[in-house]
Design a protein around this nucleic acid. Structure first.
Length: 585
RNA sequence: GCGCCCGUAGCUCAGCUGGAUAGAGUACUGCCCUCCGAAGGCAGGGGUCACAGGUUCAAAUCCUGUCGGGCGCGCCA
């Protein structure tokens, strides 16, 4: 590992320099090695002289001079210079970088992995879209992000559990059930005006046909059973509630529950199918309804009450979340005796803590940010450690079609599904595209552009680099050569041109990139890195009058070893993003 | 009104937790396939990093304010 070596060398030099200048017992800050933008500034640069100088009341350049004199004669360093206000720029010998090639090839799929996670158990909950409709492109972003994040945590030595929280309780599910029932009745020519605020999507109609195919006319009832004689100008939401209670009494509890369950299972199966097509997997699907069934919700409310954090007002039970920093208290049990969604979420998080993970990550849509304070409050109130729960927000992807913003609402049925996106631009392109940007930034997604130019998608640029390397390897035998690739530094002595040094330097950065991506929860750093690596390779490949498969054996083998290392890192990096590395395209 | 996210090239976005002359893709213009894949390479134009203060050797980056955009503020989930 090159960078730690350099840091150690520098540290010795700095200490010696300080001692020479008569400074004693100075706390050394971390010696940072930056990658200068400008190649003239060396392979690495450090600002350590500038960082130390003010505290010592000395001139940065003067201190830098002393440090540099202590650095003389090191095999890794070709030259060292002082620049600007006191930067120390290190120019490394080309051979210093070439060691990484053997590292990559020996580690193979493990190159870039680390054990900084130290086997800690971490749970990542993501997607968790309500089972009221198919996943749309907005959900896709959370899915791609969560899956990539899970992968990089695994690569960093964590044990990861991926979880999907199924919100299969509450009013929205009743609205789904009633939407299904109405469409089902329509197939029997029982026509009840379909409420505008019920689920409009065509998938409900299709589901109704399957319900009829399965259960025949079992749930048939007349319109008068469902619709009361309320004045037509009643509040639309109240009308929905009337329909729901009408359906419950018309069908009876058991049959209503069957319709309800049918709707849920159909939607969940569809979601599972879409995620599978998207290459996104989960270790656990946790259903909200189990919390009500096993008494988890009652238990959570009772526990909060026992600790003195619940009071009654207007017939409802309130959690005193303001005592823990929330801006207002929150209802946990309504005056009608039903628990709120928040109550089951408290129970859900209590359950998560009980399962003993070292760390919990929730990936939420940004529209839930107002919810963070109350959940954290509840966790504190339960005497659990809120710092173990981390909530990451994924901003919405705003979809444009024909230059116009597309609405994205499950209720209205107006959305572009994830399945459509995958079938139109492909899984690899979709996965890559979502991860090219920071997830906590708004994303404008022009669908027409994504489709019409899918060949220009950056993912192909990276995949093409991989395919090209495979192609070069395939040419070997055709040219009568054998791929007898020697390992070790000796074989890379022929690698002397700048592009080769640049490629090796980029390869050596990869572990740092993963480390940073994990620490910052930013898988897009890997995407950026892969594009740079691919660019370096394409540039190398296209050098005028240059062939990787050279006539000279030593030269040829050295170059092959280098590109094989590039190939390995491309495979490893794309794998973390959930993108394939095709051998031909 | 309060809270969260944000404002960087025509467009879409990076910018490594404060570094040197702010980058990439795309679009536009011109080159490069008699030899490893042109889904590629090379070159060019394009910027008051929203604005105004502040912190310091150094600010796109940190702090404050203003303007502009998105989202959230239910006994919905």
């Amino acid at each position: 590992m090159l960078k730690p070596q350099l840091q150690a060398i520098l540290e010795l030099a700095v200490k010696a320099a300080l001692a020479n200048k008569g400074f004693e017992a100075v706390d050394l800050p971390e010696i940072r090695l930056d990658l200068p933008r400008n190649p003239e500034h060396g392979d690495f640069s450090t600002n350590i002289a500038m960082a130390l100088a003010p505290g010592l009341k000395t001139a940065p350049r003067e201190l830098a001079v002393e440090i540099v004199t202590q650095l003389e004669s090191n095999a890794l360093l070709e030259s060292v210079e002082i620049a600007g206000p006191g930067f120390i720029n290190l120019h490394l010998a080309t051979s210093a970088f070439m060691e990484v090639i053997a590292e990559v090839l020996e580690a193979g799929m493990d190159y870039g992995r680390s054990d900084i996670g130290n086997g800690k158990h971490i749970q990542i909950e993501y997607v968790s879209a309500n089972p009221t409709g198919p996943l749309h492109v907005g959900h896709g972003r959370g899915a791609a992000y969560g899956a990539a994040l899970a992968n990089i945590f695994v690569a960093a030595g964590y044990v990861v559990s991926r979880e999907y929280y199924v919100n299969d309780a509450g009013r929205q599910m009743d609205i789904l059930a009633i939407s299904l029932l109405l469409r089902y009745l329509e197939t029997f020519d029982v026509v009840i005006p379909f409420p505008a605020n019920a689920y409009q999507g065509d998938y409900i109609v299709a589901m109704a046909q399957r319900l009829r195919a399965n259960d025949g006319d079992k749930y048939c009832c007349s319109s008068t059973d469902l619709v009361s004689n309320d004045p037509p100008n009643a509040d639309p939401e109240a009308m929905l509630d009337a329909l729901i209670s009408g359906a419950k009494s018309a069908l009876g509890t058991a049959d209503y529950a069957s319709v309800h369950r049918f709707a849920r299972d159909e939607i969940l199966a569809g979601i599972g199918h879409d995620l599978e097509k998207f290459g996104v997997e989960f270790d656990n699907w946790f259903t909200e309804s189990t919390l009500a069934e096993n008494g988890g919700i009652d238990g959570a409310v009772t526990a909060l009450a026992a600790a003195g954090h619940v009071y009654t007002n207007d017939g409802a039970k309130w959690f005193k979340s303001t005592a823990f920093g929330d801006e207002k208290d929150r209802v946990v049990v309504r005056d009608n005796g039903l628990a709120t969604y928040f109550a089951s979420d408290i129970a859900y998080h209590a359950d998560k803590y009980r399962r003993g993970f070292d760390h919990l990550i929730n990936i939420w849509g940004a529209d839930h940010h107002g919810y963070i304070a109350r959940v954290k409050a509840a966790i504190e109130a339960m005497d659990l450690d809120p710092s173990r729960l981390e909530i990451l927000l994924v901003q919405f992807a705003v979809l444009f079609r024909n230059g116009e913003k597309m609405p994205m609402s499950t209720r209205s049925g107006e959305f572009v599904t994830l399945a459509e996106l995958v079938s139109e631009v492909g899984r690899d392109a979709a996965r890559f595209l979502y991860i090219t940007r920071r997830s906590d930034q708004h994303l404008d997604f022009d669908l027409d552009l994504a489709k019409s130019q899918s060949n220009d998608n950056p993912v192909y640029y990276v995949q093409y680099a991989h395919a090209r390397i495979c192609s070069v390897m395939a040419q070997l035998t055709g040219k009568g050569y054998v791929a007898d690739i020697p390992m070790g530094l000796a074989s890379t002595a022929e690698l002397t041109i700048p592009k080769e040094k640049q490629l090796a330097a980029q390869l050596s950065r990869y572990p740092d990139v993963i480390d940073s991506a994990v620490r910052n929860r930013e898988p897009h750093q890997i995407t950026t890195f892969l594009r740079e690596l691919a660019a370096d390779f394409h540039g190398y490949y296209n050098i005028k009058n240059f062939r990787i498969i050279a006539d000279d054996k030593a030269q040829r083998n050295a170059r092959l070893v280098l590109i094989l290392a590039v190939k390995q890192v491309l495979v490893n990096g794309l794998g973390l993003l959930g993108v394939s590395a095709p051998e031909a395209m």
